[in-house]
């Protein structure tokens, strides 16, 4: 070592400094070329790893293992999807059935409400006006009239825009006329009836029927057909005190 330090160009450091000198020789060209190859290969490898995914340099067995794992994961995810879809379908079915049942119940409630007088009603029918100047028409006459209307298929009946006539509606004679369902009514009695207009008209005017009966009492009956009768007054239902549904 001591000898090397004294002699020029014998230590590693001196040789390294000389190597950075400007001289050109065959050996240096070869070294430069080989280092260029090294740099090229290294950068190509680094870029291959960068651009492609992490699998670019992986070997076949690793890839196969990886693929198997992925396939298993995908199978289990697929079965999860199937389960969840089945569950979604069954929930959707249940909800469809439920909403269908609700719709049906609502329709039924509407239909029953019209019949029970708890819902407003509209439709074709007739307007029957009984004029009774002498105050001779009794509850019996009006009851007959209602019975004729019902026989003819009346579905909703309203008197004088005040009283909705239902099964419970009572007719009672009073001083000034007739009380229907507890409401005092006087002449003229206007019946708005929803039902088949032809049948209703016939039922009101057949010989010996309502018209003749009222005319005998010095009154008049006017029958007018209408395609659009609106019945707005409602019957307020009461909870039955004695009767309860029998199964």
């Amino acid at each position: 070592m001591a000898d090397g330090k004294k002699a020029p160009l014998k230590t590693g450091r001196q040789r390294l400094l000389k190597a950075f000198g400007p001289s050109v020789s065959r050996g240096r060209m070869v070294v430069g070329l080989l280092l260029a190859i090294l740099g090229f290969l290294a950068i190509v490898q680094i870029q291959t790893l960068n651009d492609d995914t992490e699998f670019a340099g992986a070997r076949r067995e690793d890839l196969i293992t990886f693929l198997d794992t992925l396939e298993a994961a995908s199978r289990s995810a697929q079965s999860d999807i199937d389960n969840l879809e089945a569950r979604r379908d069954s929930l959707r079915d249940a909800s469809d059935r439920r909403s269908a049942a609700i719709n049906e119940a609502e329709q039924q409630a509407d239909a029953l409400g019209v019949l029970a007088g708890t819902a407003p009603a509209t439709g074709p029918g007739v307007i029957v006006t009984i004029n009774d100047p002498g105050d001779d028409v009794t509850s019996g006459t009006l009851l007959n009239a209602l019975e004729e209307m019902r026989n003819a298929g009346a579905e909703a009946i309203e008197v004088n825009n005040k009283v909705r006539v239902v099964a419970q509606t009572s007719l009672v004679d009073t001083e000034g006329g007739v009380a229907a369902g507890g409401v005092e009514l006087g002449s003229p009695y206007v019946f708005e009836v929803i039902g088949p207009p032809d049948d209703l008209e016939t039922a009101m005017s057949f010989p010996g029927g309502l018209t003749d009966e009222v005319e005998e009492l010095q009154g008049t009956v006017a029958i007018k057909r209408s395609d659009d009768i609106n019945i707005a007054s409602l019957h307020r239902p009461e909870t039955p005190e004695y009767a309860r549904p029998a199964d």
């Binding site: 190597a19 950075f20 240096r28 280092l35 260029a36 090294l38 740099g39 290294a42």
Partner: peptide
Amino acid sequence: MIAALGLLLGVVVG
């Protein structure tokens, strides 16, 4: 010198 330039050249070409 040439070795260092060669390395740089290889990287640049790559």
